[in-house]
Amino acid sequence: MQPEPRIIGFLCHWCSYAGADMAGTSRMKQPASVRIVRLPCTGRINPLLPLKALMDGADGVLISGCHPGDCHYREGNLYARRKLELLHRFLPFVGIEPKRLRYVWVSASEGARWQTIVEEFTQQVRELNQTLEGYPSEGGKASFSNEDNVSSSEDKSF
């Protein structure tokens, strides 16, 4: 039996962190996989932070901000999108499956959406971890060929 994957969540304080709280007040059960780091805005995210999390052994990174147009700081979420889109393409070059990074938009009233996203992403990371079994890797991630990775950039819910 595999241990539950350990995912780091970077959530903005105004929308997504409140959305995750909303899931809590509504008692929406979810896998105990995500450890949330609260940030003022997803725009605060330097791509090195998620990258470091993955290099240090997190199984996945889930980033969530306000919906476009709803950013508390006007457009921080849009800056984040650009940076993370690039990071997504960069991950294969350091041998990390891009599917371990997901960027989503969750508003303060979307507790149910947060629940679904946690379930889906946990499952996705679980499956990635399963494919790793049998690889003689030491905590690091198996590297995939470039072709596999470039095409998988659509799976994020922009």
Binding site: D21, G24, K29, Q30, A32
Partner: peptide, 14 residues
């Protein structure tokens, strides 16, 4: 509370 005990049922995992 909101992001742990209220959303997880498995005591060990929580």
């Amino acid at each position: 509370r909101e992001q742990c005990s209220w959303v997880h049922e498995d005591r060990e995992a929580a």
